[in-house]
C-alpha cells in the first residue's frame, strides 16, 4: 500500500507491504538512516522522531498508520553546516562517544527545549529518561543540556 506523509518538511511516499515500523521505512526505504535501531521495543529512544507534534519511538509506530502525518527525524533538526543548539551543545561537551544514542537524544532534547526553554536539571533528566546511552554515563549530556537550559533566551 502507498502511504504518503511529510518527512522533514518534504512530501514523501512509501510503499508499505506489512506492519513494519516507521523506523524501518525511514531507514530502509526513504534513505534516512539517522534514526537508529537498537531495540525495536521502545526501550532505548535511539529511534525517536517527532510525529505530529509529539516525540515518539518510531520503532513502535506502524508505518501504515502514518498516512497524512508529519514526521521530523534527526536529519530534519540541523545540518552539518547549521547545527541545532542541542547538537552544538552535545558536541562541545564531549557528550558524543559512539554516537548511536545521539540522534534520539538530539530529537528528544530539541523538542524539550522547544516546549520549555529553561528546563531544570531534573526536568532534563526525566524528559530524557527514555533515551539510553551506554557510553557516556550521561554526565556530559547533562552538562551540555544544563548549560543550554541556562543560556537559552
Amino acid at each position: 500500500m502507498i502511504v504518503s506523509f511529510t518527512v522533514n518538511g518534504e512530501e514523501r511516499i512509501a510503499n508499505v507491504s506489512g506492519p513494519e515500523s516507521l523506523l524501518t521505512v525511514l531507514r530502509e526505504e526513504l534513505g534516512l538512516p539517522g534514526s537508529k535501531n537498537a531495540c525495536e521495543q521502545g526501550e532505548c529512544g535511539s529511534c525517536a522522531v517527532v510525529l505530529d507534534g509529539a516525540v515518539v519511538t518510531s520503532c513502535l509506530v506502524m508505518a501504515a498508520d502514518c498516512e497524512g502525518s508529519e514526521v521530523t527525524t534527526v536529519e530534519g533538526i540541523g545540518s552539518d553546516r547549521e547545527l541545532h543548539a542541542v547538537q552544538q551543545a552535545l558536541l562541545d561537551h564531549g557528550a558524543v562517544q559512539c554516537g548511536f544514542c545521539t540522534p534520539g537524544f538530539v530529537v528528544t532534547a530539541a523538542h524539550l527545549f522547544e516546549e520549555n526553554p529553561h528546563p531544570s536539571s531534573d526536568e532534563i533528566k526525566e524528559a530524557l529518561s527514555g533515551n539510553i546511552c551506554r557510553c557516556t554515563g550521561y554526565g556530559a549530556i547533562a552538562r551540555a543540556l544544563e548549560e543550554l537550559a541556562e543560556g537559552t533566551a
Binding site: 513502535l60 506502524m62 498508520d65
Partner: peptide
C-alpha cells in the same frame, strides 16, 4: 486494533504478531 502501538508493535517487531488487517484508532 491499533491505538498508540506501544504494545502491539513490540509483538510485531518480535515476530509474535503478524496482523493481516489493522484498524487504526488514532
Amino acid at each position: 486494533l491499533l491505538a498508540g502501538g506501544t504494545d502491539l508493535m513490540v509483538e510485531v517487531n518480535f515476530g509474535l504478531a503478524k496482523p493481516e488487517h489493522v484498524i487504526a484508532l488514532r
